[in-house]
Amino acid sequence: MKVIVHTDQAGQWQQALSERLPQATIWKSQEADREQRAQADFLAAWKPDETLLRECTGLKGIVNLGAGVDALLGNPALPRDVPIVKLRDAGMAELIADYVRYGLFHFQRDFDRYARQQQQCEWREHEVIDKPDWPVGVLGLGAIGAKVARAIAADGFPVLGWSRSHKDIDGIECLSGDEGLDRLLSRVKTLVLLLPDTSSTRHIINAETLGKMREGASLINPGRGTLIDEDALLAALGDKNQRQEGRLRGALLDAFPTEPLPESSPLWRHPRVIVTPHMAGPTPLSEALDQVAASLDALDKGEDIETVDPDAGY
């Protein structure tokens, strides 16, 4: 088995995969010559460039070193007949659940309002809304979304989950389809976005869907930046120079269509927006390495393994 690794931590991945797959030859992409690239059986990569994909002419499989495959699927040099395996959770879900918890408490316990009051030296307590009276919606019930939904429910929040096709998850009210989405939006006080980036999910949060949400609802996006129409979001948040909240109370945003987020973006300076630099779910290296090694071994042996559906986008 010959594998090329392409990632910012290629040296670390090369050493660790060599220990887990001693029978394999592991090359770093930046050191592999054209002959080695052509000989490679598998590519383990995060956002490979077109040149690398075109020169890896003998691939039997690609392992995407992350949960999001939009950049890979959008690469014009991607060979269409090569199976793709992606990381599924690999320890990211727990980290993302913690991020979502922070956002939930930020709004449920009024920390956003207290922060603004501090700027005005205003001493005013707000009545606490109990967790059972704070329904949370989770859009996307894949491996990560389902775990995040269960974690929130275990904390005592009522959780409504939505996915393209219906799912059953204990303790979660699962909805699907356009009607299910409308029902969820009208009921939740906080909406969490964990959908993949596909043609059907881009700008799923837009003026129309934001208009269906409850007055004073909040938004948390540790998923994909393309899920949100940013102009519509800003309109729903209201004028940044006014202390009065807009229809949407606030947003915690970790992903954006262009990253890094341009300095000119009004999101940076909006008083009801928290911007984080795509850090909600960093991949724990040890768990990811175990999953990648197992995937490469299964692909090499021709075993059944769950692969990405390029048409669905995940």
Results as ranks from 00 to 15, higher is better:
Gly223Trp: 07
Gln242Ala: 14
Met279Ser: 11
Leu195Pro: 08
Glu215Val: 00
Leu248Ile: 11
Pro262Phe: 06
Leu219Ile: 09
Leu184Ala: 01
Leu210Tyr: 02
Glu215Met: 05
Glu263His: 04
Ala298Asp: 14
Pro260Lys: 05
His278Pro: 06
His270Pro: 00
Asp254Tyr: 07
Asp229Asn: 12
Pro284Ile: 10
Val188Ser: 02
Leu195Met: 14
Arg187Ile: 07
Thr209Asp: 09
Arg272Tyr: 03
Leu261Ile: 11
Glu245Gly: 04
Gly216Val: 13
Leu253Trp: 05
Glu287Leu: 15
Val275Ala: 00
Thr226Tyr: 04
Arg269Leu: 11
Arg202Ala: 00
Ala288Cys: 11
Gly223His: 03
Pro196Asp: 09
Lys212Tyr: 05
Thr258Val: 15
Pro222Gln: 02
Val273Lys: 02
His278Leu: 08
Gly225Met: 12
Glu287Lys: 15
Thr209Asn: 08
Asp239Pro: 07
Ser186Asn: 06
Thr258Met: 13
Arg214Leu: 08
Gly250Ser: 04
Thr307Phe: 04
Glu245Trp: 12
Phe256Arg: 10
Arg187His: 04
Leu227His: 06
Gly180Met: 08
Ala293Asp: 11
Gln291Ser: 15
Ser186Gln: 11
Leu285Phe: 03
Leu185Thr: 10
Gly211Trp: 13
Leu248Pro: 10
Asp290Ile: 13
Gly180Ile: 10
Leu193Asp: 00
Glu306Ala: 10
Arg183Ala: 08
Leu233Gln: 10
Ala288Thr: 11
Lys240Phe: 09
Leu267Met: 13
